[in-house]
Design a binder for these strands. Sequence first.
RNA 1: GACUCAGUAGCUCAGUUGGUAGAGCACAUCCCUUUUAAGGAUGGGGUCCUGGGUUCGAGACCCAGCUGAGUCA
Length: 392
Amino acid sequence: MSRVVVGISGGVDSSVAAYLLKEQGHDLIALFMVNWHERVGNITSACTWEEDALIAEMVAKKLDIPFHIVDLSKDYKKRVVDYMFAEYQAGRTPNPDVLCNREIKFDSFLDEAMKFDADFVATGHYCRKSEVEVNGETIHRLLAGKDPNKDQSYFLCQLNQQQLSKAMFPVGELLKPEVREIARKQNLPTAERKDSQGICFVGKVDLPTFLQQQLEPKPGNVIEIPATFSEKKKQLEVSEENYRKLCFSFPYKPWNGKVIGEHQGAHFYTIGQRKGLNIGGHKDPLFVLGTDVKRNIVYVGEGQNHPGLHRKGLFVAHDDMHWIRHDLKMEVGEKRTFDIRIRYRQPLEKGTLHLNKDGAWFLFDNEQRGITAGQFTAWYLNDELIGSGVIA
RNA sequence: GACUCAGUAGCUCAGUUGGUAGAGCACAUCCCUUUUAAGGAUGGGGUCCUGGGUUCGAGACCCAGCUGAGUCA
């Protein structure tokens, strides 16, 4: 039997993960990590990590396994929160939780686990693992969780083989209701606890409030782009010379539309966003088509079907390409089809990845809504996550 | 200066032959969701420009005024 450090958070998923490992007879240690101390915003109901830690400890006691707390807030601040602010500042939309897994749970936290002589680190993620032999080398595969509604493989899309080799995902074979059921049967204190949401570890905080801790408000114009304008730009054939136009967001200019309102800072908005524009008087809702943080302009379009909301492809720079399956890494000049995800909980979409000297060009069979720079794209073959990269 | 049209929720407007008001958007809350979005549900909101008049009763009819847009000179 192996020695396993299970990261427990005070939620059901990690509690049940711990229980299952215990049942399998592993030598278990529960480790709770603190990643954020500050209380931000004046959200009175915001629960602090102390409460989570308390409940996590109750779970550990119930399962009769040793419980420890480790404070990783310094790392979290430096490697996740700072990145997040920097990305927003630059006009991109980051995914802090993907970074949290790569930089914290499967790095700093894994290091801590190693101090307990752990063979593995387990988490409550809804995903699965398996191995294949390729030329005598063991390759770890990251697979989607069995519950299609809860699959969290996307959040682990930036892990490498080293990290994956140490990971265990005990709930990946289960459906969420089954996890709840087990928790209830075992009388775990987390059985009926509401799932966590919001940026992991920072907690239930209103994102705009959180961003305003660091980013200054800066009033600027909201400009509406007529649907007819975007329509004209779209009659492009999918060919290599058109990749740039098809795979980058259109560089709108102020004279492409008319000023219809004011915003409090272009860096607070993301493509596809509807809420928070504070502009009424239209027949259909307005959605953000793009932002320009240099000129501090937010470009919007009216209606779900505004052509400017949809794009045929996206681009990932060579340096931002990450292959979990490094044995499947493509050569420059190659083209392959994958099932592609452009953000968490987005259905997989068929598309072709063409790697050329400039980088990776992803062309979808169908236009995608709200492709946003800074988010991660992840490509799959069936259930398996093959690689991921930052959308340019 | 004359004439025409308009003035109803934060915004854009609808309100039939007069019976104290509605829709979309916006906003709020909740649901969904370990990113950002989206989506779903619910909800708060109006001295119907002002002052008179007709009427049992006016957002609607009449008169005057104010404001805005336009047309003509």
